[in-house]
Simulated scan of single mutants.
Amino acid sequence: MRRLLLTAALPLMLVACDGGGDPVQQALRDASAERQAATVTDGEISGPAPVDHAAMGHGAAGGPTPGDQAFAASEAEMHRLMAEASGETVDQSYIAKMIAHHQGAVAMAEVALRDSRDPEIRRMAQAVIDAQTREIAEMRAWRPAG
């Protein structure tokens, strides 16, 4: 019973700590709360759901699925840009690599908006685009202290 209360309270604690302002964080909290609620049966918490590797993009033969292929170009470009991003200091490298990482997230979200018909996926993808674009602008505006 104690585990049940803790599991039920976790999403509420996350909201209280964060203030609920970031739409991406809110979407993650909402999804987490839904998953947690789905694991409660007869007052007990079930174990973790079995991992469906086919649903995670690994076909029966282990090759890329059509879902994987939809993201292949944006994923490859993100990794290329992150590998090329650099700076003289840890701070500068961090900013350069995170900008590339966020650009990759935006590109992946754009694929989801283009190809998904699921309203929840489309909502989350738009929230990622909005938040990551805002953070890219913030990082580009950063200048070393000194």
Score class of each variant (00 low, 15 high):
residue 2 R to N: 15
residue 101 H to Y: 09
residue 33 A to S: 08
residue 124 M to N: 08
residue 127 A to R: 04
residue 48 P to R: 07
residue 87 G to H: 04
residue 84 E to W: 08
residue 61 A to R: 09
residue 145 A to E: 11
residue 73 A to R: 04
residue 139 M to N: 10
residue 132 Q to M: 03
residue 109 A to W: 02
residue 22 D to N: 15
residue 9 A to V: 07
residue 48 P to C: 08
residue 88 E to S: 14
residue 146 G to R: 14
residue 128 V to Q: 01
residue 70 A to F: 11
residue 114 R to P: 06
residue 28 L to P: 02
residue 102 H to W: 09
residue 61 A to Y: 04
residue 144 P to E: 15
residue 47 G to I: 06
residue 89 T to C: 12
residue 29 R to M: 15
residue 105 A to F: 03
residue 91 D to L: 14
residue 74 S to K: 03
residue 14 L to C: 12
residue 110 E to S: 08
residue 62 G to A: 13
residue 107 A to F: 00
residue 82 M to R: 05
residue 18 D to I: 10
residue 108 M to A: 00
residue 108 M to D: 05
residue 106 V to T: 01
residue 99 I to D: 06
residue 125 A to F: 00
residue 85 A to Y: 09
residue 120 E to Y: 06
residue 93 S to C: 02
residue 121 I to V: 10
residue 20 G to V: 04
residue 115 D to C: 05
residue 19 G to C: 07
residue 48 P to T: 09
residue 89 T to D: 12
residue 110 E to C: 05
residue 55 A to N: 13
residue 122 R to G: 01
residue 82 M to Q: 09
residue 59 G to T: 11
residue 123 R to L: 03
residue 57 G to Y: 02
residue 142 W to R: 13
residue 69 Q to F: 09
residue 42 D to F: 03
residue 85 A to S: 07
residue 30 D to E: 07
residue 45 I to D: 07
residue 98 M to R: 01
residue 49 A to S: 13
residue 119 P to A: 15
residue 133 T to D: 01
residue 128 V to I: 15
residue 43 G to P: 06
residue 51 V to R: 11
residue 95 I to A: 15
residue 40 V to A: 14
